[in-house]
Amino acid sequence: MVSEKTRLVNEQGFHMRPATDFANAMQKYDCDIRIEYNDNQINAKSMMNIIAAGIRYGSDITIMCDGKDEEKALREAVDLIESGLSE
């Protein structure tokens, strides 16, 4: 398993559009991907679960990937979040 700490830089938080784009990007990986936020673990392939978590602007989160393409998945997940999810 690999993981990395990062921070959400979208002013609006993880709302519908970024959550959709993010979950879609994660769905192409085989590994299990989770977002840890406030001691909760969220399935990163599910936009509904991401929105439900209500992750706010400036929150510290940890991305955790477990499976055969975990390195690649982690890289893309962190890149997407740090680039502000193209907002």
Partner: peptide, 16 residues
Amino acid sequence: RKILLGHTAMVKDPYV
């Protein structure tokens, strides 16, 4: 358009 496409994504969410 993204709003309506987001609605489609809600049903297609693998978890849902």
